[in-house]
Every structure is written in C-alpha cells, then in structure tokens.
Computed example of a mutant assay.
Amino acid sequence: MLEQVIHFTNRKMPGKLPSKTARALLDIEDNQIVPVIRDRQKTQIDSEAVFYFPGCGSERLFSQVGLATQAMLYDLGV
C-alpha cells in the first residue's frame, strides 16, 4: 500500500489544463446563488434536477471532466 501511495504522489500533475474553472467558463461564479443549468426545450419547472458538486480537486485539475458531465446532464434534460 505504501508503495502505491508514493507512486501516486510522485506522478506529475496533468498538463495543458484550462486556465479557468468550469464555473468561470460558464460565468456562474457568484457564491450567493446556486445556478440551475437546464435546457428549457427538454424540461419544465418541476422536472428532475441533479445537484452536481465536482469537488475542488476535480474542478481544478480535471475541469474537462466536469464540463463533460454538465454537458451530458444538460443533453439528457436533467
């Protein structure tokens, strides 16, 4: 186990990362509101919703995954 942890922590950070977070790219950085992102063509006011919380690590290091997840949920109408 110790060797695996050392191997994981010795790896280089991913390169070519976006310079902005997903929230910054979508211009929804106001910490006083919770943005609801949905396609009005596919949803109604009482449609299902998902609370998506990527966490600070994935948001900063793998924001492409967060954006892809949000795009998938948007496309599904959730």
Rank of each mutant, 00 (worst) to 15 (best):
D27E: 10
T9H: 14
P18R: 08
F8D: 15
A71H: 08
L17K: 15
Y52A: 01
T9C: 13
R38P: 00
E48R: 14
K42C: 10
D46I: 06
T21W: 05
A71K: 14
A22Y: 01
G55L: 05
H7G: 08
V50M: 15
G15Y: 03
L17F: 03
R23N: 08
N31K: 15
Q4A: 09
G77T: 00
R23S: 12
Q4D: 06
A24F: 04
D30Q: 12
G55I: 03
P54I: 01
F8P: 02
V50P: 02
V5R: 14
Y74M: 07
R40I: 04
A22E: 00
Q41T: 04
L26Q: 08
P35E: 03
T21V: 03
Q4E: 09
L67R: 02
L76T: 00
D75R: 13
M72D: 07
H7K: 14
R23P: 00
G77Y: 02
E3D: 10
F8H: 15
L67V: 02
V50T: 04
S47L: 10
L17T: 04
N31H: 11
S47G: 06
Q44C: 08
K42L: 15
A49Q: 13
Q64Y: 05
I6A: 14
V65H: 11
T9Y: 14
D46S: 13
G15N: 10
G55E: 01
E29A: 06
E48I: 01
V50C: 13
G15H: 05
V5S: 10
N31P: 12
S58I: 11
I45R: 15
I33A: 11
M1W: 04
R23E: 08
M72P: 00
G55H: 07
L73I: 01
E59Q: 12
R11H: 09
I28E: 05
L76C: 09
R38A: 05
M72Y: 07
L61Y: 07
K20G: 00
K12W: 03
G55Y: 03
